[in-house]
Amino acid sequence: MTALASAGLLLTACGTESGAGSEGGSGGRSVESEVPLTGIRWNVASVTVGGEKYDAPEDAHLKIGKDGRAGGSFGCNSAGADVKIKGDTLDFGETRLTKRACPEGRMKFEEHLTRALAEKKLTAKVDGDRLTLTTAKGDHVDLTSRAEEPDAPLTGTKWKVDAVGGGQSAAPLPKDVSGKVQLTFGEDGKVRGNLGCNDVTAKAEAKDGRLTFGTPATTRKMCPGDTMATERKLLKLFDGPARYEIERNTLKLTAADGTVINATGDPSGADPAGAGRNSPEK
């Protein structure tokens, strides 16, 4: 409902195309806009209700058609509605939603989004590729026309480790090893890399956000300063089942004992075959 609303508003705010919408609803009215808005995917970034901000789930978006219809997805259910625009306000008709059951987080977001756009009139403000839809109560929906970057793949990406630490946070790597620590998960079911001093290789199976490792094999160099202490922390990753999360080009690894490792992806720097040339093999 909110996504649709935003679509219509966007047309008004920018002001020469006729109509708004796609994916649902019927009818509509012509509007004038200096920049093309129809056929563009507007990604919902967040919704703020009662002072609380909620980030949108993946794929929450809307599209505006030239036929006076607006439609999209709230991250769970698809929606469609007619759009009427006057000045910088948007009025949308009855919103039709599909009735899929989704994980609780997505359903909650859909609830908040619907609540934010329950009022008939929304005020639109456009700033570059960003659109903000605001209700009379001050709740607002933030959208962007900027394309979402896909998450880097776990396999085949050279992950440069930036930080390691305990608990839920990680501290930047010491100067002695900064820029040296990296891991690459290969298509052959192994992870290879460097721990700042020694090379490492181990079997690695990834499934549903979890990693299962085999016993790691490392070279046996002795290094000065904080390097060996950092290496010991990094090796905790292989002590048991670990979790991984990827967002855009960042990777967070959480070891069984709670050790957290943060890394940044560099797809161009990975061995295409995912195979290290000099890593120790078991």
Rank of each mutant, 00 (worst) to 15 (best):
L10T: 08
L11G: 13
R106Q: 08
D127Y: 00
P224V: 14
L143F: 04
V35Y: 00
G65I: 09
T95S: 07
P267W: 06
V141T: 04
A81T: 08
T184V: 09
K180R: 14
E94K: 14
R106I: 04
C76H: 05
D151V: 11
S46K: 04
F109K: 08
A3D: 13
K221V: 06
T227L: 05
K125S: 15
A60K: 02
L4F: 03
K66M: 02
L4Q: 15
A20E: 02
L37N: 05
G72H: 02
V35K: 13
T230A: 01
R146F: 04
T250R: 15
A5T: 10
A5M: 14
D129W: 02
T12W: 07
S178D: 07
D82A: 11
F92H: 14
T38N: 05
T155V: 14
D271W: 05
Y244S: 04
R115F: 01
A81D: 10
T219H: 00
P280M: 01
T95Q: 04
K63L: 03
L251N: 04
G240N: 09
H112T: 12
T254K: 07
D139T: 10
T135V: 11
E205K: 14
S26V: 10
V31H: 05
T123R: 13
K137I: 06
A116I: 15
C14Y: 10
A275R: 13
V260Q: 04
V44N: 05
D226I: 04
S178M: 14
P153G: 02
G105S: 12
G265M: 15
D67V: 11
M107T: 02
C223T: 05
E52A: 14
G165W: 04
Q168C: 01
R243V: 03
D151A: 02
R277G: 12
S73H: 02
F213V: 06
G167R: 09
T230L: 03
N77W: 00
P280E: 08
G165K: 15
R69N: 09
T134F: 12
E245D: 14
E187V: 07
N262W: 02
R192F: 05
K63E: 13
R96A: 10
G214D: 12
P280Q: 01
T95V: 11
K207I: 07
I85W: 01
W159K: 07
K63R: 11
L4H: 14
K233P: 05
G105D: 12
D188C: 14
T134W: 09
E247K: 15
D226C: 06
A79N: 07
L234S: 00
P150S: 03
G156E: 01
L154K: 08
S268N: 01
T201Q: 11
